[in-house]
Structure formats: structure tokens, C-alpha cells
Simulated scan of single mutants.
Amino acid sequence: MTLKIGWIGCGTHATQMLLPQLLRHDVEIAALCDIDGVRLARAARQFGVARTTTDAADLIATPGLDAVGMAVGPDQHLAFGKAALARGLGVFMEKPPAATAAGARELQAASEAAGRPVVVGFMKRYSVGNKIAHNIIASGRFGRVLGLTGHYMTAPGYFVGNVDYTGFFLHHCVHYMDLAAHLVSPIAALSARKIEAKPGRLLFHAAVDFACGAVGTIVMGTVQSRGTPVERIEIMGDHRRLEIEDVVEVRFHRDPPFKTDDPAATLDDAVDSLTWKPNFTAAANEDHKGYHALLADAVAALKGEQSAAPTIADGALAMTWLERLRASMGV
């Protein structure tokens, strides 16, 4: 069955990241909506969509839709998501699902009442290096996870004019409130310390306790250029260590012996380190950031099939921990 979807929001992220990957699946974009008529017309040409509107209510009322997708603002995600659910439509939305944890829980309740899924765009779960690490842990080969250290930086581009950290937390930090739990286990406690180089230049270290007993440190902030590598994760076990650099390099360290004084030194499949890095020269339509894989699960969920797609329940939980993180720092 081809999924007929109406889409709200035709900005750069939607037209460059989401919609091209969505159309690689068994999907028809039946209608598009954006408040900017020029942007809307450009997206309609790009994706060959005849039906367009600047009114989200009109989009949601389009006859024959199976689902609605959206990449707009958090307040619009809540309002438009509830409206789509009220019409019996499944929903895909970019994160965050709402501006507040209470709003996310409201959307979760609406999803449960309607019996229709809301899938949230936590693509970090699907970013290829994170996916490899998650699958190694889930396989049992890694053993017990003891700790996680994560770095996820950005630049202060959110603060043109008025310094307000809300966008930074909602659009950036929320990812790791979901990803850390996905890689290890649910978060059980969290607190953070911060430093501001000057208004708009924030750095914080968050201490995390996981339900499985593991401990973690997550470092985030707005004091690094987006033109440099800004993401790194290390997962620690007993004589096991996974390192993920910018989602495209993975190293799995196990328990290799010293080799310098061993005349029979070799590489042992059972204990030596494994590494992976993609071949960027290959003529393949790969999506290392994870949008294609995320949308594969999203489409399955919206068709009513079994799916591992991140749900609104995951979104509400991530938003809850995000608000506790902000409260611990008073920002």
C-alpha cells in the first residue's frame, strides 16, 4: 500500500533532508503546506506536488490522506498534530514534539485516544555509527554498559539579536536526552553545571544516572564552530569500549594483548579492535545521518505495521528530562 501523506513545512530542513529521503519509500506526497507562498511553490515544483495550501487546517482536511508529516515549530507540532489525530490520521513530526513536556504528554494522550501513531524525528538513533554501537550492545557482545560520555556541540547561531537558549535546548539538546537512553537504558537522574563565556556562549556538563546502574557525562554547548567535528560518544564496559566519532567512524576495542614483545604477534578476530568508516567515494545514495532509516520505520508505523520508530512516548520522556536539565542550571 502506497502511503498518501500531506506535509506541513517546506523549509530547508524539510526539502533537503526529510522529503527527499521520504520519497525513497513507498510514499506519495499528496499535498504540501507552508505559510510562505514562494517557498511552497518551489517545494511543489521540486517534488511534483499539485495540491498546495498555506493553511494547515486545509492540508489536514485533504481527502484521502493516510497521514500527515510536519517540520515546523514546537507549538505548531502540538496544535497540528492534535488536529491530524482528531481526523484519524497518523503523524510524523520533527523533534521537538512540543514546546514543553506537558505539551508532549498532551500529544501522547491524543495519540492514545485516537489509536493512531505519532512518530518523532529522533534520527540520532539511526545515524549509522550510533546504529552500529546500539546493535553491538543489543547483541550481548559488549556485555554490561558501565558508562557513557557524549559530546554534542554547536555554534551560537540560535542567538541572532536576543539571547534565548530555548531554541538550543529544544532543537539541539533534546537529541541526547533520547539518544543516551536509547544506547544505555532509561535515564534515572540528571543534573548539570554550566559556564557562560558571554551571553549566547554556553557550555555545560551534565551528570547522568541510568536505570541499569551505568553513569554518564554529556557535554553540550554553543562554543564550537559547526565547521569542525562536534560529536563524539564513548561507551565503556568491562574491557570493552565503543567510540563513535561524528556518527561515521566506529571503533570497538575489546581485550587485545600487548604485541611489542610477542614474536608471534598477529591480529586476533576474537580480541583485537574492530573499526568501521564509510567509503564516501562510493556511488551510493547513503544517508549516514539516519533520515532514510528513520523514515523507513516511520512509514511502517504509519501503515500500522510493526516498527521500532521513536514514538511520542519517547518524545515526552525526552522532553521531561530536558526540562529537568534546564531547571538544574536555571536556564
Rank of each mutant, 00 (worst) to 15 (best):
T166H: 07
G167W: 01
G167M: 05
F168S: 04
F168M: 11
L170W: 08
H171C: 11
H171L: 15
H171T: 10
C173M: 07
C173N: 09
C173E: 11
H175Y: 09
H175W: 13
H175F: 12
Y176T: 13
Y176F: 14
Y176N: 14
M177E: 10
D178T: 01
D178Q: 03
L179A: 07
L179F: 00
A180K: 00
L183C: 04
V184C: 10
V184E: 12
V184A: 09
P186W: 10
P186H: 09
I187Q: 09
I187F: 09
I187E: 01
A188M: 00
A189N: 12
L190H: 11
S191E: 15
A192K: 13
A192W: 13
R193D: 11
K194L: 10
K194S: 15
I195P: 00
I195G: 04
I195F: 09
E196A: 14
E196P: 04
A197K: 15
A197H: 15
K198F: 01
P199C: 06
G200C: 01
G200F: 07
L202T: 05
F204E: 06
A207W: 10
A207Y: 08
V208Q: 13
D209R: 09
D209K: 09
F210S: 07
F210H: 07
A211P: 01
A211T: 06
G213D: 03
G213Q: 04
A214P: 01
A214W: 13
T217N: 03
V219S: 07
V219M: 05
M220Q: 02
G221E: 09
G221A: 02
T222G: 00
T222L: 01
Q224C: 04
R226I: 02
R226F: 04
G227R: 13
T228W: 02
P229Q: 12
V230N: 15
E231L: 11
E231G: 02
R232I: 00
R232D: 03
R232V: 01
E234Y: 01
M236I: 15
M236P: 02
M236L: 14
D238G: 05
H239N: 15
R240M: 12
R240K: 14
R240F: 03
R240D: 08
R241D: 07
R241N: 12
L242F: 12
E243H: 12
I244F: 08
I244L: 10
I244K: 13
D246I: 14
E249I: 08
V250E: 06
V250C: 06
V250A: 07
R251A: 12
R251P: 00
F252V: 05
F252L: 03
H253S: 12
P257D: 04
P257I: 05
P257C: 00
P257M: 02
F258C: 02
F258M: 05
F258H: 08
F258W: 10
T260E: 12
T260N: 08
D261I: 10
D262N: 14
P263V: 05
P263R: 04
A264S: 10
T266N: 11
L267F: 15
L267R: 13
D268Y: 12
D268T: 02
D268M: 06
D269Y: 12
A270M: 04
A270T: 05
V271F: 01
V271T: 09
D272E: 02
S273H: 03
L274N: 06
W276Y: 13
P278H: 08
N279L: 11
T281M: 14
